[in-house]
Simulated assay, not measured.
Amino acid sequence: MTQVGVTLLIVVGARILRLGFDMVAGGAAPFALIYPAIMLATLFARAFAGALTATIMILYIWYFLYPLERSFKFVNSAGAFSVGIVIVTTVMTIAIAELFRRTAHHATQERDREIAERDLFLAEFDHRMKNNFAIVAGLLDLQKRRAREPATAAALETAQMRVDSIARAHRHLYRGTGQPGTVEIRDYLTDLCAALAESLFLQGGITLSCDSDHAAVPRDRAVSIGLVVNELVTNAAKHAFPGRDLGSISVTLRNRTEGGWRVTVADDGVGMPKDAALPEKGNGLGSRLVEAFARQAGGTLSTESDDTGTRVVMRLEA
């Protein structure tokens, strides 16, 4: 029924188009529209629709237009030869169109099969990666619970959060929503900030917000950006609000007009002491890690700090 419906639609469309041609050059090239019509019918509804379209149009033109109106008779042998050539060429056209349709259909099926296999492989790889990260995080958590020194427990907790940041980047990488090998940075940072707010017990008056433009960032750079954000947010949560119940930390990522991105982590805390090391100075493990992660991402850091808070900006070239 679908093939018959397509045939009738194409025949009617060809007839309407033929009427328009007849208004300009009446009776010229009566068989001209057969070939595009049967190609469309074959490509969209298989060879049967093409053959049915050819049969209807040839019989209609033969009887009503060529060579004598309302007659299947020929004036001479040349007319019969012309109709015979049209029939042979329409059969050839249908065969070629059907071969092309089957080839394209086979190629589409092969592509879909390869995509399904790729998705299956990525799902399996994603599952294994999640298990590996979960094992590492579990071992760190076990060691943290056994640690007797608060400093050791805090260091293990920080390491656990870094592992979680990397794991989240890989989860977003294999969701298959972006370009191959890239991470949708807005979704990743939103997910990361939500996890940081939960793990750092940010609640009540201390809030963490995230606002990011849409951008497809290469996997390795996204991991480095996440690690920088992880370090800066953790540092702000632990040191920016001593003795305070109110405060805010914000994470933003903006696309730069000249290309690349600008990542900002800011808080409205007490600011850094005059003699404290800024991230670019490279003193202290946390500062050295931020600097190392920023270099790994291909970015440069700048820090502003006063009694109204601290603002760290990382600029990344495209």
Results as ranks from 00 to 15, higher is better:
159 A>V: 09
221 R>C: 03
227 L>P: 09
150 P>T: 07
166 I>H: 04
205 G>C: 01
214 H>I: 09
207 T>E: 08
233 V>H: 03
142 L>P: 03
205 G>M: 00
187 D>S: 14
181 G>C: 00
185 I>L: 03
209 S>F: 08
161 M>V: 09
164 D>R: 12
212 S>H: 03
218 P>D: 04
164 D>A: 14
155 A>D: 15
163 V>H: 10
202 L>V: 00
206 I>D: 04
170 H>K: 00
217 V>W: 06
138 G>P: 10
193 C>Q: 10
215 A>Q: 10
225 I>A: 12
231 E>T: 01
153 A>N: 03
154 A>Y: 05
179 Q>L: 11
156 L>C: 10
152 T>E: 12
160 Q>K: 14
188 Y>H: 14
161 M>K: 11
173 L>K: 11
227 L>W: 04
214 H>F: 11
137 A>E: 14
219 R>I: 00
178 G>Q: 06
159 A>I: 09
136 V>C: 04
193 C>M: 06
185 I>F: 06
188 Y>D: 06
226 G>L: 09
195 A>Y: 12
186 R>P: 05
219 R>G: 02
230 N>I: 10
192 L>H: 13
228 V>S: 11
158 T>S: 15
145 R>D: 09
170 H>A: 15
144 K>Y: 03
171 R>Y: 01
229 V>S: 03
141 D>M: 13
199 S>A: 13
144 K>R: 13
166 I>M: 12
209 S>L: 09
178 G>W: 00
141 D>C: 04
176 G>D: 06
142 L>T: 14
213 D>A: 13
140 L>T: 08
190 T>E: 15
226 G>F: 10
185 I>V: 12
197 A>V: 11
230 N>E: 14
179 Q>A: 15
230 N>P: 04
208 L>S: 04
195 A>P: 05
213 D>T: 05
153 A>Q: 03
186 R>V: 02
212 S>I: 06
167 A>T: 01
234 T>L: 01
176 G>F: 00
153 A>C: 04
157 E>L: 06
157 E>V: 00
162 R>W: 08
154 A>I: 01
177 T>W: 02
199 S>E: 13
171 R>F: 01
178 G>P: 09
178 G>I: 02
174 Y>D: 00
137 A>K: 15
227 L>A: 04
146 R>D: 09
224 S>G: 02
172 H>K: 07
156 L>S: 02
139 L>S: 10
144 K>L: 09
156 L>E: 05
228 V>L: 06
167 A>C: 04
140 L>Q: 12
204 G>A: 13
146 R>C: 08
199 S>R: 14
234 T>R: 13
225 I>C: 00
188 Y>P: 02
162 R>Q: 14
155 A>H: 08
216 A>L: 00
175 R>M: 05
150 P>Y: 08
160 Q>D: 06
218 P>V: 00
